[in-house]
Design a binder for these strands. Structure first.
Lengths: 158, 158
DNA sequence: ATAGAAAGGTCAGAGAAGGTCAAACATACG
DNA sequence: CGTATGTTTGACCTTCTCTGACCTTTCTAT
């Protein structure tokens, strides 16, 4: 018994399949109108069904003439190092371990040396200490920034 | 879906590309007439799309016979780095401007799209807000992290 | 000199997108 | 049942664009 989210997902995927490019552009309002729902429903669909984990990338622009662009990116990177990253979520976020993972990702050519350097900056304590933040506080922040950065890398794999 | 601002931007860039010099001259009124809009719209376009952060320089003369001159500044790589760093130190560290610099660095192929995404993570406010840090405090931290990251990029050539 | 015309500049506010979040509702599963 | 997970809605927010009223500078004719 498909629900609204399913219908919208199906519709968008059909559009993507028909598109000659590897992306489509939609107007949130318009699409919401087409399916007779509130606009934020569209965001929900995008979040659930067009996530980076599923191989999609969504960009948008606000303001007059704004729109939402959905890319379909083929992702073969998949699992291997994803497992390693799982370990870095939350509780056990420790710069030492993270650096090891970075090294490994470089070895496996999943990220470049420059990218690794950028990621390393995020987990370097000094800037946070200089800003007078407590260690336990900035660890969480580092973890957030780091994971966000990884997400970006996974999205922009083309 | 392009809007008026996009069209005017495109038009001006085309003029620049066609020009034998590295600048073009326009009449604000005239251009506004061509695109059937109010003259101040032109100022808006110049501010948003032809900012120094994006590598453009705009000069103008008022009064009878006045006009607007738009330069496209192509710096060599080294210069563009220095410029970027300069603009982003301390006082004027504003995410909006930084994003424009990032766009420019991508345009000039000084950084890759992936690197740009990583740098963008650093200046995205959300993680900091979630960590309960005051805006004025995290701006400084963002500035430190960002500059550190740029330093790293300079070390490791592309 | 000086007044008026002919540029361009500034700024605030309206309007047009899309984003976020939490609460209500629905469904599936133990 | 009742709890967990997934969906739908609506109130409120942020960002980007566009307009118009009003200001400043420069040129030109007297």
């Amino acid at each position: 018994m498909p629900n609204l989210t399913d219908y919208i997902e199906e519709y968008l995927k059909k559009l993507l399949a028909l598109s000659s490019k590897h992306f489509i552009e939609i107007r949130r309002r318009e699409l919401a109108g087409k399916f007779d729902c509130v606009p934020s429903q569209i965001n929900y669909v995008l979040e659930r069904r067009f996530s980076p984990e599923r191989g999609y990338l969504v960009e948008s622009r606000r303001g007059g003439g704004g729109c939402i662009r959905i890319y379909h990116i083929k992702q073969e990177i998949a699992g291997s190092w994803r497992g390693a990253l799982q370990a870095l979520r939350e509780e056990e976020f420790e710069p030492m371990k993270v650096r090891q993972v970075l090294q490994r990702m470089m070895d496996e050519k999943v990220i470049s040396r420059r990218e690794s350097s950028l990621l390393a900056v995020i987990i370097h304590d000094e800037p946070y200490r200089l800003s007078g933040i407590e260690k336990s506080d900035y660890r969480k922040l580092q973890c957030r920034l780091f994971n966000q950065a990884l997400e970006e890398l996974m999205k922009v794999s083309y």
